[in-house]
Amino acid sequence: MSATVRAADVSVGTELPEQTYPVTRAGLVRYAGASGDFNPIHWNERVATEVGLPGVIAHGMLTMALAARAVTAWAGDPAALVEYHVRFGRPVVVPDDDTGARVTVRGRVGALSEDGRARVDLTVTSAGEKVLSLARATVQLA
């Protein structure tokens, strides 16, 4: 029950491996079912465009979950993430094709505390635009 990354091996500025995750329409349907968020803007093009969106968009919470994967994959332990805050900036538009959208997650250690916690500042983009305007994860390191 601990991270595989040791605080002693991390410093402010340490970069996490960049990760890219695909998001497809089928994936949105699956996430809707798993999370219980059935808002039609995440699966119905007609409703999405009626409310002024460019098309069907991913659940913000799915983008948040993908960004967390990049953090816990680096830390080596999903239980190491103790605090996590994001601000949703732009929607991830998911085209109706077999490729979908791609969400890219970059991370950098922005602060370290004496109790071995690292604050990871995340940059999360899709189609070259930042989709989370603020994303910070606090990880308990070994």
């Binding site: 913000g60 993430l81 605090e83 805050h85 949703f88 603020l134």
Partner: peptide, 10 residues
């Protein structure tokens, strides 16, 4: 309504 921010404290 749109989702503006989300935080988890575990």
């Amino acid at each position: 309504v749109v989702h503006g921010e989300q935080r988890f404290t575990h």
